[in-house]
Amino acid sequence: MRYRALFWAGALAFLLDQVSKYLVVHVMGVAQRGPIDVFPPLLVFSYGENRGINFGLFQGDGDTARWVLIGLSVAISLAVFVWLSRAPRSAVMLISGGLLIGGALGNVLDRVLYGYVLDFLNMSCCGIDNPFVFNLADVFIFAGALGLMLFDGKKPS
């Protein structure tokens, strides 16, 4: 019962990520239509296939790279879960961990199903043209990691 926040945050992050990808990529057909202006230039749906990590770093076309990234994501998710379960944690820490794990597993499912991660969000602002695309899982991973760092409850030494 103690880890209900972790479970529900992870499940919600995973579900929102997968539903958003399904709607934008498969229902709206962003891959076939091309970019879809939502609130240009702040938010544009633009199709991307990420075979690397965030921002397309460490791109690899082979099955080896794909399975290494899947294994790494699962290992990190398990490590975060074990770390959070070793001592009582605040609800904010558990929610942060859930967001990170749910986002990571959303990207893992993409790699298993497609061989790459589906990306569709592009954000530009203030005269800066951002060439990168990402997805909600990436947002959840970033927010979760940030929350784990900011709210770990340790006092600075």
Results as ranks from 00 to 15, higher is better:
P40H: 10
D152V: 03
L113G: 03
F140G: 13
L121C: 02
K21A: 13
L136W: 04
V30G: 14
V30H: 08
I36E: 06
R66Y: 03
L15T: 08
V19G: 08
D138M: 06
L16E: 05
G103D: 08
V133Y: 07
P35Q: 07
G115R: 04
S20L: 05
F142G: 07
I70W: 09
F81A: 14
F14Y: 10
R89E: 03
V44F: 08
K21G: 03
A13P: 06
N107F: 05
S90F: 01
F132S: 14
D119V: 09
G115T: 01
F81R: 01
D17G: 03
L57R: 10
L69Y: 07
L100S: 11
V19N: 06
L42S: 03
M149L: 15
H26K: 09
I70A: 13
G144M: 11
Y114G: 09
V139A: 11
F140V: 05
Q18D: 10
V25I: 14
C125M: 13
N135E: 10
L118C: 12
D63I: 04
N122P: 03
G147N: 02
W83L: 07
F132R: 12
G48I: 05
R2S: 13
W67V: 04
L43W: 00
M123F: 11
R51D: 05
S77C: 08
L100C: 12
F151N: 14
V80M: 12
L6D: 02
K154I: 02
A11T: 10
C125E: 12
V38D: 09
V117D: 13
G52A: 13
Y116E: 07
A31E: 15
L99D: 01
F151V: 09
Q32V: 14
